[in-house]
């Protein structure tokens, strides 16, 4: 635990030592702003909620999270610092967890930077703050899911561009699994159980259900176990491939 925190602190500091953190947060805010106010029709709807804000999160993360996660391990492998890191007295799993938690905390900070919009909606109307809070939690959990996938894929290569593209495509599959268009493809010929299974893997299904205001244990378990599985795979891949 102590070693994990040591790594977490180093990593988190590294985000802010370079322009990466600031560029990321500014772009994140710009994009959420544009999407919410122009495309989501935040004002036109004349409803005091943040539905148009959260609606775009799965898509926004699709681009932005792989941009964070691509460097997690690919860069360490490319520059050779992985040899420095993994010969320090902790296990590969602790290193994986530490780096993941730092990236997650960083997305949490970016998400925190959007809270003025929460204040705004409270000034303009009388929103259900419980729902908004739940949606924030859902969004953070979903970001964790994207990050775990991206971290795992980043460990497979020393090329950040490859890590970015493969992560983006993989995360896309986890979004698409819940879209009506994809589910329609199965309806009619596949048994309901198959359709339910496919949609149960979708980030959309779980995120939307939390964003409605109910933090259902099943959705939390979904994201938690997804993160756990990908981080475990991440550790195994690193142990097998770190020397290449």
């Amino acid at each position: 635990m102590k070693s994990t925190i040591t790594i977490l602190k180093r990593e988190l500091r590294a985000y802010f030592a370079t322009p990466v953190a600031y560029v990321f947060i500014v772009i994140f805010l710009l994009l959420t702003g544009i999407l919410t106010f122009y495309m989501g029709g935040f004002f036109e709807r004349e409803q005091a909620d943040l539905a148009p804000f959260f609606f775009f999160h799965p898509w926004l993360y699709l681009i932005l999270i792989p941009a964070i996660s691509m460097r997690l391990w690919a860069e360490e492998r490319k520059t050779g610092t992985i040899e420095l890191l993994l010969t320090l007295p902790f296990s590969t799993g602790q290193a994986v967890l530490g780096k993941f938690l730092a990236a997650w905390a960083f997305t949490g900070i970016a998400l925190l930077a959007t809270t003025p919009i929460w204040l705004t909606v409270n000034l303009l109307g009388d929103p259900d703050n419980g729902v908004i809070f739940a949606a924030y939690i859902g969004s953070l959990l979903m970001a964790g899911g994207y990050l775990a996938i991206g971290s795992c894929i980043s460990a497979m290569t020393n090329n950040q561009v490859i890590a970015f593209v493969v992560s983006l495509v993989t995360c896309m599959l986890f979004i698409l699994a819940g879209l009506p268009a994809v589910l329609d493809f199965f309806t009619g010929w596949a048994p309901q159980a198959v359709i339910d299974t496919v949609s149960s893997f979708s980030f959309m299904t779980h995120f939307n259900s939390i964003a409605k205001g109910v933090i259902d244990l099943r959705d939390v378990i979904f994201f938690g176990s997804l993160i756990g599985c990908f981080l475990l795979a991440n550790t195994l891949i690193l142990d097998a491939k770190k020397g290449e």
């Binding site: 070693s3 040591t6 602190k9 590294a14 030592a17 520059t79 610092t81 992985i82 420095l84 902790f90």
Partner: peptide
């Protein structure tokens, strides 16, 4: 190999903590 965006001091602080 070293973390190039750190300074020797912050790097050594990290190593000292890890050690």
């Amino acid at each position: 190999p070293l973390y190039s965006d750190m300074t020797p001091r912050t790097l050594l602080e990290f190593i000292a903590e890890a050690r």
